[in-house]
Design a protein around this nucleic acid. Structure first.
Lengths: 200, 200
DNA sequence: TGTCATATGGCAGTGACTGCCATGTGGCAG
DNA sequence: CTGCCACATGGCAGTCACTGCCATATGACA
């Protein structure tokens, strides 16, 4: 990697860090792009070349975590059972949380202090779920059922969301592993009451 | 209801209709608030008093459908089994789709032509899910498990999303009832491969 | 060292959204 | 019927996120 690229990578990170600090210090809405650019020592126009949107500055952190989870899934060879490959995803999320707990708590604090931000997060989860559904389908060699892939991907995303939400809800005090175990247990023991079509 | 309120209700609807027509005709991004206000014969300032955001003009249609579904859930007496009450939700969605198919197709066309809009939709689904989780919890008299309520609400939302998505995916040609049946069947026969925590 | 691709940043412009204030109109008391 | 009041309306100026355009600076490579 040339000097140019490393420098750009550093700038990219520095911008996100500066933004993060400002958001924590004075809130998302009360922080302008100009302030962030000034703190990161770049022009606003340059900032927009790194992060196309103000929202992206916050969402990128979560995005990194989800990207890692997707990589973990893709790293599983096609031979391994789907359930195991999906476990790798959940496991990756668990590790990400463990490794960045302090920052994640601050991040989610920003999220629920700023109503408009939730949309960006929700959208990120949505596209990640779409991507996972596609990969599940591809993994099964096109023979798989589209509905099935969609539901499986959605369920996986649910687990992640519920775990993260539960974890942040009590200030990150509970052990992520415990929460994950409980959630998977609940899902696995089929405690979700949903009617069979026969009910009708 | 006084004359004043009916008039406001009519204005509210007229604004949304005008916006919808313009979005269909020339796209979401290429339609300005001024144009919508002009078409609806109100000032832009007044428009913002009815819909706080441009996004809200589109999302409101979906919101109405979800509100109806929530009402259907709340209408079920606490004695009926949860699974049956949830079925009422899915059923309501099914009816909404059946009754507004043409408009819904146009609406979802706008949605996937406009990348930025998806966030608003995702967010709407997110808060609706939250609300449902709370209501499930309340319904069980506070004795219920929070994780369980969250997962159940999320699963319900999944079913709705998957059904709607599948339905719109092939231009609304397939029968909604069939799709719903298939989806519920898939969920009910527990074809979602997810590992038990014991796997670890 | 010269040249080129590319990163940078300033500037002007657009459009969503807000606060403030003047004006118009329905609802109600007298 | 009339006058008063609460409230709906709309215009105007201002803020801020974001974009296209162009001039300038800088790493990469011959």
């Amino acid at each position: 990697m040339g000097l140019r690229e490393t420098k750009m990578e550093r700038t990219r990170r520095f911008i996100a860090e500066s933004a993060f600090d400002l958001f924590v210090a004075q809130g998302y809405d009360d922080t302008t792009i100009e302030q962030i650019a000034a703190a990161a020592e770049v022009g606003t126009r340059t900032l927009y070349r790194y992060y196309s949107t103000k929202e992206a500055l916050v969402v990128s952190f979560v995005e990194n975590g989800l990207d890692a989870a997707m990589d973990a899934f893709l790293a599983q060879p096609d031979e391994t059972p789907l359930s195991e490959a999906l476990y790798a995803v959940v496991d990756s999320v668990e590790q990400t949380i463990g490794a960045n707990s302090a920052r994640l708590l601050a991040l989610y604090d920003i999220f629920d202090k700023t109503t408009g931000l939730r949309a960006g997060l929700a959208d990120l989860c949505w596209s990640w779920r779409q991507r996972l559904a596609e990969e599940i389908l591809r993994r099964e060699g096109g023979t798989g059922d589209v509905l099935h892939a969609a539901l499986t991907a959605a369920s996986t995303m649910n687990v992640i969301e519920v775990v993260v939400q539960t974890w942040t809800a009590n200030g990150g005090k509970a052990d992520v592993t415990d929460i994950t175990r409980d959630t998977l247990d609940l899902l696995h023991t089929k405690a979700i009451p949903f009617p069979s079509p026969a009910v009708r």
